[in-house]
């Protein structure tokens, strides 16, 4: 049971210290990702998706504080890892990253080839831990890897592309490059934080299909954050909904869409005018994280809330096969 989980986040709480006070951005978040699985993380803007992704990567902003919890990756707690160890063997190796904005995630001053070469120098699967020199043998093999990968992400003229500077390349191509760079180190887990938000709608679907295909081929797992339920439906195996810094519901993609158990999930799905449109939100306001409501964080916007929701935080309830929900009054028939 434990063995099949690649990543498991348990009771993770993160606070941001700001001038206005302490924002409780993640509050006892728990969820897990299995080997070879694509996990979608959806929720309204500001619910903490990026914060969760950054916590896993160990690159939270300077004013963040991890208050409690564990992030178990292959059984060991990433939060207890020495920072140098995380930099050396987790980030960009075991866990890699596809950024939201491919336009600004390259340095404008170096050619694409140079930036990929620097990445491979430190993150090539060939590199032995602690290796400092970049020998010609490894360089050659890495070059072949890069060429093969650029073909795999369907970039035309890889040779020419490597000589170009980022501003000379289109957004879609840059995001393909980002995906290539994320996969080159042969990671176990790829964290893709809204990888298509910055792109043209027409390109988004292509990029998602590409990502899904390559991931299936390599057997890596993905944490995929998005606003776009349609996109999540397309590529995810399971989906976790977040609300105001907590996971509200986790379910396999089919039961998520067919039998939502959390009133919030239900409202999200109901608010979808057509299948492929982004979240447009539901009545009421996202609560302040500086001063979240007592009890269930969703109760001010919930139509089925009762007395208990006002003062007691709901626990996570198992609703069915792999279907968990954090609610006092889960929708009956949900989960089953």
């Amino acid at each position: 049971m434990v063995a099949e989980k690649l990543l498991s986040v348990e009771g993770l709480s993160v606070h941001y210290i700001t001038e206005g006070g302490t924002a409780r951005v993640l509050d006892h978040v728990g969820f897990s990702i299995r080997h070879g699985e694509i996990m979608g993380l959806v929720g309204e803007s500001g619910c903490g998706k990026t914060s969760l992704a950054r916590a896993i990567l160990g690159v939270l902003p300077g004013n963040a504080e991890v208050v409690s919890g564990k992030i178990l990756f292959k059984g060991s707690d990433l939060l207890r890892l020495a920072p140098s160890e995380a930099e050396e063997s987790i980030r960009g190796r075991a866990i890699s990253f596809v950024p939201q904005d491919p336009f600004t995630s390259f340095s404008p001053l170096f050619s694409i080839g140079e930036q990929i070469r620097t990445l491979m120098r430190w993150k090539s699967p060939d590199r032995k831990p602690g290796e400092k020199v970049y020998g010609s043998g490894r360089r050659k093999r890495d070059r072949e890897r890069v060429m093969a990968m650029l073909q795999a992400v369907q970039l035309p003229d890889p040779e020419g592309l490597l000589k170009k500077y980022p501003h000379e390349v289109s957004g879609g191509q840059r995001q393909r490059l980002m995906i290539a760079m994320a996969l080159l180190p042969e990671p176990r887990l790829v964290i893709a934080d809204e990888p298509t938000t910055a792109l043209d709608v027409t390109i988004q679907a292509q990029i998602l299909k590409l990502l899904k295909r390559l991931i299936t081929e390599t057997g890596a797992s993905v944490l995929f954050t998005t606003h776009d339920l349609g996109a999540a439906w397309e590529i995810c195996d399971r989906i976790t909904v977040m609300y105001a810094g907590q996971e509200a519901e986790t379910a396999p993609v089919q039961s998520f869409f067919d039998r939502p158990a959390h009133p919030y999930t239900k409202k999200l799905l109901d608010s979808l005018p057509t299948e492929n449109s982004p979240l447009i939100g539901i009545p009421g306001r996202v609560p302040s994280l500086l001063n979240p409501p007592a009890g269930c964080r969703f109760h001010p916007r919930c139509t089925s809330s009762t007395e208990i929701c006002h003062h007691k935080q709901p626990d996570v309830t198992e609703m069915g096969y792999e279907h968990a929900v954090r609610c006092h009054h889960p929708i009956m028939g949900g989960g089953q």
Binding site: R54, L57, V59, A86, E87, E88, I90, R91, G92, R93, S96, F97, P99, D101, T104, S105, F106, S107, P108, F110, T118, L119, W122, K123, M181, A182
Partner: peptide, 19 residues
Amino acid sequence: NFVFYQTAMGLPRRTIIWK
């Protein structure tokens, strides 16, 4: 953003800074 990306990809701090 690019420094964030490089940090998230685990490039050594020294490389990020000096390069």
